[in-house]
Design a protein around this nucleic acid. Sequence first.
DNA 1: AACGTTATGTAATAATATAACATTTATAAG
DNA 2: CTTATAAATGTTATATTATTACATAACGTT
Lengths: 132, 132
Amino acid sequence: MQKEHSLSKNQKIIFDLIDKSGGPMKAYSILFNVQKKGIKAPLQVYRALDKLVEIGKIHKIESRNAFIACQNSSCQVSKATAFSICESCENVSEISNSKLSKYLSNFSDDSGMKYSKYNLEFFGLCKKCKSK
Amino acid sequence: MQKEHSLSKNQKIIFDLIDKSGGPMKAYSILFNVQKKGIKAPLQVYRALDKLVEIGKIHKIESRNAFIACQNSSCQVSKATAFSICESCENVSEISNSKLSKYLSNFSDDSGMKYSKYNLEFFGLCKKCKSK
DNA sequence: AACGTTATGTAATAATATAACATTTATAAG
DNA sequence: CTTATAAATGTTATATTATTACATAACGTT
Ligand SMILES: [Zn+2]
Ligand SMILES: [Zn+2]
Ligand SMILES: [Zn+2]
Ligand SMILES: [Zn+2]
């Protein structure tokens, strides 16, 4: 069951934009796109992004400084994320693989550290770019 | 067997600094620390960092915008990296676990994508911080 | 020596992100 | 409904991270 996080005005504007774009978006590109809706300053964007990340509606692609809508309906909180990134066209998609997530969530080594979160980014060439 | 990449002057200065620090360092902190050695501009630092990453002597911790010396002697090229990061003290260490690296290097899904590289970052509390 | 490649020096600027402060709006308790 | 509290917003300025552009020097090979 899904806990409803009713989004605020700015959060909704920004989430809708990212979600509709279907891919990763960068903060200042988001800013540019929402200026017509009255969001004028970087901080307004970053605040909404922070919140959206916190509640798991979007994820940050760390290697690209970009944000993407969660493509996995069951991904409530951004604690276990995995992405595949094409190094040619920069297409990004969220990997939803229960074996992988189980393997990583249960991973432990001899460091005595308890891992509560992970982010994995795979790089390569997507089908389209490979065949070029 | 290890291919020798003889480092240039700036590369050596910067690698030695990061290596001796024993942890992750940020680019502008590196810059500050090497100014007495004649490296005066950000670009000089970033160029050396780029090269050091390329040849696998250091890795970038993407979630922290920081660079750490490779702690894994067999890690020639930065194609398969995994780190554990303490969210309290920001201690970072490179995970060297052959089962994990084998699992991830062989990972494939139904996307048709061939992965040639990955970066994994685990987050949690280190032993020290956990016991506080 | 001549050539191509790699590294360096320097200045300017672009791109990403946060600090600080004032105000407003939403939520919940009494 | 009122008051208290937390969450969100607006605005300006600034900090941090990274790259562009161009000129010069050092290195490795033939
Ligand atoms: Zn997700
Ligand atoms: Zn592609
Ligand atoms: Zn390594
Ligand atoms: Zn710690």
